[in-house]
Simulated scan of single mutants.
Amino acid sequence: MSGDWAVELHGVRKRYGRGGNAVHALRGIDLTLPPGSFTAVMGPSGSGKSTFLQCAAGLDRPSAGTVRLGGTDITGMKENKLTALRRTRLGFVFQAFNLLPSLTVEQNVVLPMRLAGHRPDRHRTAEVLAQVGLADKARRRPGQLSGGQQQRVAIARALVTRPDVVFADEPTGALDTTTAAEILTLLRDAVDTHGATVVMVTHDPTAASWADRVLFLADGEIAAHLNRSPASHIAAHMTALTTPRTAYAETAA
């Protein structure tokens, strides 16, 4: 992979609307994430988490600043080039799985290769399905699988092209605690064993405790960060982030 950093954001701002009605979702994000790292992004509702993920992953363009992925500046990239880059060098895992019900597990996993115009690599597909514990489910359809198994398929699909970065948006949001832990184990293993870089937005301190580093967003800015920390420590940090405003509001009243 070219470049010293997997993800770089420099002065990234995102504004929706104009004039007095403008909403400043991101207010100047500066961030570098090394390859082979697992970063969790947390923050109160409306803090800019989703916008951050969309700008970092090239799904939305920042109003100002630059975004680099694996050393490639994607900020001004033409849409067709950006689409090709997303299909080959990025992986995505969403809360809603986003599998195609009419395709088999194997066909869902090779989809990024097909969309990128590459011949599906059956050996690689078998490898990632084994990695997520679904080697025997390749011919099944998503509707025949549990929620946890469907999210495993989504992870296999995200990893199949050996992407520079995997972006995960609330990947455990629809899962029970035990299944969530299994999914987080897979993401952690992708980082530790296979050198993947994972950036995960989550509202769950337990999920965030699996990451090497937790970034806290507030009002579109990085308000704080913690290195590998227990869930209780992360939860306390989240509480501290949201408390001052409440306390101020009570005093003002």
Score class of each variant (00 low, 15 high):
residue 251 T to Q: 12
residue 181 A to K: 00
residue 154 A to V: 06
residue 87 R to E: 04
residue 175 L to W: 07
residue 46 G to V: 01
residue 106 E to V: 08
residue 54 Q to V: 01
residue 118 H to E: 15
residue 146 S to N: 03
residue 81 K to W: 08
residue 205 P to T: 10
residue 158 A to Y: 08
residue 94 F to C: 05
residue 195 G to Y: 01
residue 85 L to P: 01
residue 231 A to E: 03
residue 208 A to P: 10
residue 67 V to D: 12
residue 173 G to W: 01
residue 173 G to D: 01
residue 142 P to R: 12
residue 168 A to Y: 04
residue 80 N to V: 11
residue 226 L to W: 05
residue 14 K to Y: 06
residue 237 H to V: 03
residue 172 T to Y: 11
residue 99 L to H: 00
residue 63 S to G: 13
residue 214 V to Y: 05
residue 207 A to P: 04
residue 66 T to D: 12
residue 130 A to E: 14
residue 66 T to S: 15
residue 23 V to S: 07
residue 85 L to K: 03
residue 170 E to Y: 02
residue 150 Q to R: 15
residue 23 V to A: 13
residue 4 D to L: 08
residue 112 P to H: 14
residue 33 L to C: 10
residue 69 L to Q: 03
residue 21 N to I: 00
residue 178 T to E: 11
residue 77 M to Y: 07
residue 198 V to A: 00
residue 229 S to E: 12
residue 232 S to K: 15
residue 3 G to W: 09
residue 135 A to I: 02
residue 46 G to R: 03
residue 88 T to D: 04
residue 167 F to S: 02
residue 83 T to E: 07
residue 209 S to Q: 06
residue 205 P to S: 08
residue 75 T to W: 00
residue 27 R to W: 01
residue 149 Q to G: 02
residue 214 V to I: 12
residue 156 A to E: 14
residue 221 E to H: 10
residue 156 A to N: 09
residue 221 E to Q: 12
residue 214 V to F: 07
residue 114 R to K: 10
residue 49 K to D: 08
residue 62 P to H: 14
residue 234 I to K: 07
residue 20 G to Q: 12
residue 45 S to D: 04
residue 173 G to P: 03
residue 186 L to I: 13
residue 225 H to S: 10
residue 113 M to C: 07
residue 249 A to I: 10
residue 120 P to F: 08
residue 11 G to H: 11
residue 140 R to S: 14
residue 197 T to F: 03
residue 80 N to F: 09
residue 152 R to N: 11
residue 203 H to N: 05
residue 249 A to H: 06
residue 247 A to E: 15
residue 104 T to D: 12
residue 22 A to W: 03
residue 19 G to M: 14
residue 131 Q to K: 09
residue 139 R to H: 13
residue 82 L to P: 12
residue 225 H to N: 10
residue 40 A to W: 05
residue 132 V to M: 15
residue 138 A to Y: 01
residue 208 A to H: 11
residue 25 A to R: 02
residue 19 G to I: 13
residue 171 P to Y: 06
residue 125 T to A: 14
residue 157 R to Y: 14
residue 102 S to Q: 14
residue 144 Q to D: 00
residue 109 V to Y: 00
residue 53 L to V: 14
residue 65 G to V: 02
residue 176 D to F: 02
residue 136 D to W: 02
residue 133 G to E: 03
residue 102 S to N: 14
residue 196 A to K: 02
residue 215 L to W: 04
residue 227 N to V: 07
residue 62 P to N: 14
residue 91 G to E: 08
